Computed example of a mutant assay.
Amino acid sequence: MADWPHGYSRHVFDTLDSTLSEAARMAPTLTGPAWILAVEQTAARGRRGRAWSTPRGNFAGTLIMRRTGSPADAALRSFVASLALREAFVAVTGREDAFALKWPNDVLLNGGKVAGILLETVGEALVIGVGVNLAHAPTAAQVEQGALTPVSVLGETGARVAPEDFLDALAVAYARFEDQFTTYGFAPIRTAWLSHAARIGEVVTARTMRDETVGVFEDVDPSGNLILNTAKGRVAITAADVYF
């Protein structure tokens, strides 16, 4: 692993309840950023406590690092992680144009969901959970109604990628974008993310537990909010699930 990023530790487990849970257990003794990989998870979760299927062959990884800056800065790491994921996908498949980024924290492959990101804080640590359908994708019955169709890297590209190999590619890419973020701020990350954004210029629906906003996806602002041009004017969406 000559290319493994300096300063990041690497922890690979055959089976864990959840890499997010393992990160929480590691947090009190954390001395530097650490990647955690589980070949199999038995109690994985996604956003809002949703179940996330992680059979063997898929990627279940978590990065834990000391939280620096404001809570808003921590939330912007979802864009850093999204760009790193896309770069890792391109590295392992060679498919430059097949991957797109869906606000706020998903990666799409040929229009279907191939990866998701979950950010949490544990004490003074930031935890970034990453789930990738490398070899298997959930069935339509396993996802909520209206959600994008899940796809896998193997099914869409024919590339058979081992989770540990994907971790190596992701860790290298993440370290590069993290250095860019800490050195230059969010502006270059935002520009890069928008250049790969899915459905920009098209009508999308942003839903929360309480309401729904329909509008043209115009931008992501300097705070990471989704900007929709609606019948009532431009609206900034702080948090929501986006539907196409």
Score class of each variant (00 low, 15 high):
residue 1 M to R: 12
residue 2 A to D: 14
residue 6 H to V: 13
residue 9 S to L: 11
residue 10 R to Q: 10
residue 17 D to E: 09
residue 19 T to E: 00
residue 21 S to L: 03
residue 22 E to L: 00
residue 27 A to Y: 01
residue 29 T to E: 09
residue 37 L to K: 06
residue 38 A to K: 01
residue 47 R to N: 12
residue 47 R to S: 12
residue 49 G to I: 03
residue 52 W to R: 00
residue 57 G to N: 03
residue 59 F to C: 06
residue 62 T to K: 06
residue 63 L to E: 13
residue 64 I to H: 03
residue 66 R to N: 10
residue 74 A to K: 08
residue 77 R to E: 09
residue 77 R to A: 05
residue 81 A to S: 13
residue 84 A to P: 06
residue 89 F to W: 01
residue 96 E to K: 03
residue 107 V to K: 00
residue 108 L to N: 08
residue 110 N to R: 14
residue 110 N to K: 11
residue 115 A to N: 06
residue 115 A to Y: 03
residue 118 L to C: 07
residue 125 A to Y: 08
residue 127 V to N: 12
residue 128 I to D: 11
residue 130 V to L: 15
residue 139 T to I: 01
residue 139 T to N: 08
residue 140 A to C: 05
residue 143 V to Q: 10
residue 143 V to P: 06
residue 144 E to K: 07
residue 152 S to Q: 07
residue 160 R to S: 15
residue 166 F to M: 09
residue 168 D to A: 15
residue 169 A to Q: 10
residue 170 L to W: 07
residue 172 V to D: 08
residue 174 Y to E: 09
residue 175 A to P: 05
residue 179 D to I: 00
residue 188 P to H: 06
residue 189 I to Y: 00
residue 195 S to P: 05
residue 200 I to M: 14
residue 206 A to G: 10
residue 216 V to S: 04
residue 231 A to W: 02
residue 232 K to P: 00
residue 232 K to N: 14
residue 234 R to I: 12
residue 234 R to W: 07
residue 238 T to S: 15
residue 241 D to S: 15
